[in-house]
Amino acid sequence: MKHVANIAGRELRSLFVSPVAYGVLSLFSVLAGTFFILNVAWFNDMLIRMQQFQAFDQLARMNLNDQLIGEFYGSMSVVLLFLIPGITMGLFASEKSNGTDELLLTSPLTAWDIVLGKLLGGGLFVAILVGIVGLFPGLLFFYGDPELGRTLTGLLGLLLVGWVYVAIGAFASSVTRSQIIAFLISLVMLLVVLLLPAVADLGVATGAPWIGEFFRYLSANAHFEQLMHGLVETGDLAYFAVMIVTFALLTKASVESSRWR
């Protein structure tokens, strides 16, 4: 596994010499800024209205963490859901269409070197995106007093959600040689993960509560919310680990099986 860093480094360097990375970064910054401003405006609006209606007990429950930062992180997780398939679509598919898979698979590398290197490359790029997200709540510390702990654990949650998306996107990229197909497969898979809570509710309605519980566990959102509330629990962290490891294993199997076609 000594070559993981080499694979990840090449991936990132290729990303940053192409205009795609900068396009994604600018687009993402603009979206983050827009969502942040919208959230701040909405928050102010609520405060003013509650004062007008003298709804003091509701006013007391408004806080920067839940009603502003949490909403903002939630919006950004949806942005990541649409953006990450675009980042991960090339991870394996472009190697296959370039013919460079023949280079990697005939070099003294293990399948884990390749898979973990790709995941690390994609994961670091997403970490940059999450870092950009983190700048905005940072501004609030100059004007208000949000809780630092929850602001950071929420950001950690966003990062972990992003990494799950990267693992899913990497798997999608490993099963095809077409980047567009990889994009579509991962988008569909991510939408399924996003919509699992709705499926879970259906499960409850049909009178099989354990199915509901199971789907709820598989959805990233519930675990993400726990972290946004400042609750760092092993159960939630284990969820992210299980998802990432599962898709890493699937991707490894897919990379190895491509030799066997």
């Binding site: 080499n6 290729s14 010499v17 192409s18 370039n98 013919g99 460079t100 280079l103 005939t106 070099s107």
Partner: peptide, 30 residues
């Protein structure tokens, strides 16, 4: 594999890399 140098039918190149950074990557993975 460590003892093989292989030129496939289509050269396995990363079009966005420079020649020297490409060879530096190859030197590492070999």
């Amino acid at each position: 594999r460590r003892r093989i140098g292989y030129l496939p039918e289509t050269p396995p190149l990363y079009p966005e890399m420079t020649v020297s950074s490409y060879l530096a990557f190859i030197a590492r993975i070999k």
